[in-house]
Design a protein around this nucleic acid. Structure first.
Length: 419
RNA sequence: GGAGGAUUCGCAUAGCGGCCGAGUGCGCACGCUUGGAAAGCGUGUAUAGGGCAACCUAUCGAGGGUUCAAAUCCCUCAUCCUCCGCCA
């Protein structure tokens, strides 16, 4: 949610931002108009209410026999107050509904354009040249007894899979490596709830344009999270955090559930795009003045992870039209996938500035009072895609796969063998 | 699933339908006292909105209702605690 005061003072900036995202800029004027009406209604209500409060006091002070006369007109006043109150509430809601439609104000450095207009910031590592025909992760997964998509489909439907043997062990190793590096970086490890209430889902902004991709358990009115960003962000909902404790960094490990609506025919083979996967997510509550620096740090930790996995990748600055509504800037890391001859997204980090915190009512307190905090998130490791990248990049001609050095201590060996 | 109890200012508690935005204790901040500290004493100590300001308005788990007036009465819901049942 955008700060209405900021919007009042900088309508042109917000309009330009909406335009840059390819979103409706006329909302800005609608908000301003609605806000004006709201303030008038608020003023009317407050004056009437003040009158009523004052009157009530005179009633209280009056003698018993004088009261009936005093109460004569009081009912009318009470009705007027109630009416004004309803009007005020109505306009407050209308204004809020409009404000909620606005996306976060873009970082001036974010590239403007659609999905294809990202800017490549850097390439790290060199894609390997194979002296044999590389196999894709589905084939390798079968040879290693690591991934079983056929039985996944049988039991759970499309985009489902089993990780077995080496695959399961690889997940544990990745998680353990991720958590131990997060600990070194000062993160608090968290295993959050993955079943959350509407307030948490709504507050983190996943019931807006992303609602189609969220699983909902209607009977109990709860949602399955698509990322632990949701329970991590909502963890401090309605709280005031002390400024000296910032940044507060959490590394959440959880399953993630995604309906993948509207992706029919896209990445249908293998485990690049699935309905359920595990992920370690970094989340930071920080001082708004520190958000940019924190964003750079999250990106660096993501890069460190890819470096440790010895996988070539590139970093892209995601274009305005492809940002989530909460993010004002987003960097994706794309790993080289040999059999696709392409870089594919494996991790992503977003700076949500105070946008998300305002919805969730999370503030920090310093000497000057309380203000909205900044929130940032970034993927440390999303299991299936990392498995794809590791298998495909580190495969040998016979189908065995070399294990990156960083993971060897967690697996007790240096190679995955055929089954 | 059933039966009770609770939810008030950072924490602990008090609170008769009007004098309660709310008392007390602790904590915290500032001041006095002291060679310095502790103790003691004094003062202050919520958030949000509107207004240039004085000030006004809202908020006692949430949402409704009764009333001229609700922390206080009624209804619904949420969370927590205790007991019973059930399952691990």
């Amino acid at each position: 949610m955008i700060d209405i005061k900021y919007l009042r003072e900088n309508p042109e900036v917000v309009k330009a931002s909406q335009k840059g995202r390819g979103e409706d800029e006329s909302i800005v004027d609608k908000v301003l108009a609605s806000d004006e009406l709201r303030r008038v209604a608020l003023d009317i209500f407050e004056k009437l209410r003040a009158e009523q409060n004052l009157f009530s006091k005179t009633v209280a002070a009056a003698k018993a026999e004088e009261r009936p006369a005093l109460l004569e007109n009081a009912k009318e006043l009470a009705t007027a107050v109630k009416e004004a109150d309803n009007k005020r509430t109505e306009l407050e809601e209308a204004t809020k509904n409009l404000v909620m439609q606005l996306s976060n104000v873009l970082d001036p450095n974010a590239p403007i354009g659609g999905e294809a207009d990202f800017v490549v910031l850097e390439h790290i590592g060199t894609p390997r040249t194979f002296d044999f025909e590389p196999k894709d992760h589905v084939e390798l997964g079968k040879l290693l007894g690591a991934i079983d998509t056929e039985r996944g489909a049988k039991v759970a439907g499309s985009r489902s899979y089993y990780l077995t043997g080496s695959g399961a062990l690889l997940e544990f190793a990745l998680i353990n490596y991720a958590i131990s590096s997060a600990l070194k970086a000062g993160f608090t490890p968290v295993i959050p709830p993955v079943l959350v209430n509407p307030a948490a889902m709504e507050g983190t902004g996943f019931l807006g344009q992303a609602a189609e991709n969220v699983y909902r358990i209607e009977k109990d009115d709860v949602y399955l999270v698509g990322t632990s960003e949701v329970p991590l962000a909502a963890m401090h909902m309605d709280e005031v955090l002390p400024a000296e404790k910032l940044p507060m960094r959490y590394a959440g490990y959880s399953s993630c559930f995604r309906r993948e609506a509207g992706t029919y025919g896209k990445d249908t083979r293998g485990i690049i795009r699935v309905h359920q996967f595990d992920k370690v997510e970094m989340f930071s509550f920080c001082h708004p003045d520190q958000a940019k620096e924190e964003h750079a740090r999250l990106l660096q930790w993501e890069k460190d992870f890819l470096d440790a996995m010895e996988i070539p990748y590139r970093v892209i600055d995601v274009a305005s039209g492809d940002l989530g509504s909460s993010a004002n800037r987003k960097f994706d890391i794309e790993a080289w996938i040999p059999t696709q001859n392409a870089y594919r997204e494996v991790t992503s980090t977003s700076n949500c500035t105070e946008f998300q915190a305002r919805r969730l009512n999370i503030r920090y307190r310093d000497a000057d009072g309380t203000k909205a905090i900044a929130t940032l998130n970034g993927t440390l490791v999303a299991i299936p895609r990392m498995i794809v990248a590791i298998l495909e990049n580190h495969q040998n001609a016979d189908g065995t796969v070399n294990i990156p050095k960083a993971l060897q201590p967690f697996l007790g060996r240096d190679r995955f063998e055929l089954v």
